[in-house]
């Protein structure tokens, strides 16, 4: 028994089981404290690294133009001048409106079209389903820059260059794969028996969808909406390629044009303020829907 209880390489193997037990117990709280300290340190490091670049922009946005090059992480003199400045400029306010409008419309459309396709993929059996899944996967990996030249040309020919719709269409295309994966993962989690039960209970397919499936899929739709919104909100390439004026340029592209305004005196403060403004909605989403976002990001990828 003793040979089993003591591992061969245990230090001080001569001590009995009782003594060994006591030392372990005595070391317990100390170990816990160390572990706690270790985890706290790791957490603090992660939090610092995640937040510092953002806090730096916040700091710049509150610095007066004169002190912007002082290199201090915390501003010596706080000012709201940068924020007032960008909200006076239609370059920014119009872009903010474009960003919001385009992202919201794209999101709503992507969730509706995505739900339809995802429901079909998760629940129905029809020829061409595998091709469709393959197609969406292909799109998810598609190099967007490959489309910039043809779309640029095409959009000018059919007259939707530099319009909201001209951006909504490519956003929809590239967010649909994301929407379909996420939503079909959610639909798959809804037990099929529920739908059968609804049918036996006398529901038509439409009633079964609206009264049983849709309420249960609502969290998935919210999650998908957030992910799609973040995707559209983030886009830069299409926005600088397929717009030419304020009428449909979104904020990321507009910010890039802040720099172009003056070659020598870069409007760092304005850029920082604009950056902070468009980051706020994301932060709110993240704080409110952390669990949902994590679930959505991982559902499509791991289920497979």
């Amino acid at each position: 028994m003793a040979t089993i209880a003591t591992t061969p390489d245990a230090p001080g193997g001569s001590s009995g089981a009782g003594a060994g037990g006591r030392t372990i117990r005595a070391r317990g709280p100390q170990r816990d404290r160390n572990a706690m300290l270790g985890w706290t340190a790791a957490n603090l490091l992660i939090i610092a690294v995640s937040l510092v670049p953002l806090l730096w922009l916040v700091s710049l946005s509150f610095k007066a133009p004169a002190s912007i090059t002082d290199g201090h992480f915390i501003p010596r003199h706080w000012t709201l001048e940068n924020y007032r400045g960008i909200f006076r400029e239609s370059l920014f306010t119009r872009a903010l409106l474009n960003s919001l409008g385009i992202a919201l419309i794209s999101t709503v459309l992507a969730v509706i079209l995505g739900s339809m396709a995802a429901y079909a993929i998760a629940r129905l059996d029809f020829p061409g389903k595998r091709v469709l899944i393959g197609l969406t996967l292909l799109i998810a990996m598609f190099p967007q820059v490959s489309l910039v030249s043809p779309l640029f040309n095409l959009w000018r020919q059919i007259g939707i260059f530099d319009t909201w719709i001209g951006l909504i269409i490519p956003y929809l295309t590239f967010s649909l794969p994301l929407a379909i994966y996420t939503l079909s993962a959610f639909f798959r989690e809804i037990p099929w028996d529920l739908e059968k039960a609804a049918q036996v209970d006398g529901a038509t397919p439409a009633q079964a969808f609206l009264r049983v499936i849709a309420p249960l899929a609502a969290p998935g739709m919210v999650t998908t909406a957030i992910l799609v919104f973040i995707f559209c909100w983030n886009d830069f390439l299409f926005s600088i390629s397929l717009t030419s004026t304020e009428s449909s340029r979104t904020v990321p592209a507009a910010i890039a044009f802040f720099t172009g305004a003056s070659q020598f005196a870069q409007p760092i403060g304005s850029i920082a303020a604009a950056a902070v403004v468009i980051t706020i909605p994301i932060i709110i989403f993240v704080l409110l829907f952390q669990r949902r976002i994590v679930a959505g990001l991982t559902s499509g990828a791991v289920k497979g």
Binding site: A35, M36, W39, T40, A42, N43, I46, I47, S50, L51, P53, L54, W56, L57, I230, W233, N234, F236, V251, P252, I255, A256, I271, A272, A275, I278, T279, I282, I283, F285, V286, L287, Q290, I293, V294, L297
Partner: peptide, 26 residues
Amino acid sequence: ALIGRGLVRTVILIPYGIVTVVAAFG
């Protein structure tokens, strides 16, 4: 992690959510 799992999960979503252009300016 024994502590702060939820906090870490929330915080690391911020880099994910930030507009790439904004982060690049940072």
